[in-house]
Amino acid sequence: MTPPESKAARILYCHCAYAKVVPEETKQKVLRELNASGVSFDAVADLCEMSARKDPALQRLASGGETKIAACFPRAVEWLFHAAGAPLAKAGVEVLNMREDSAEDVLQALLGETANKTSEAKS
């Protein structure tokens, strides 16, 4: 998977609601800043649960061009979508790992300039 180049990529946020594997403070900060940014985005409770249930909504979330996904390890996200019969496109999809990366890094990749502006406005 290669990262999307356009700034207008769709954003998908996974809350990993059924396990405590993503640091709580990272999730909270990413969700807070996304909410404050004014950007439209899709949020799901738990991609694992949707994959296990073969939720048809994954088709909707996987299709439609460039996408940035804030979730966990890219390999896990890629095969979760595949397992649900909704494979992600090989190009134009960037998975950001909230399990390992800092909220700041994830937000920078999601929002770019907007992330800087939101932080500046707060300070």
């Binding site: 609601a17 950007v39 439209s40 985005f41 949020a43 799901v44 649960e49």
Partner: peptide
């Protein structure tokens, strides 16, 4: 989200 729902935020810019 804690209740397990899918939520879309329709903001002033960007697509969903």
């Amino acid at each position: 989200l804690e209740d397990g729902h899918q939520v879309t935020r329709s903001g002033s810019n960007g697509t969903v």
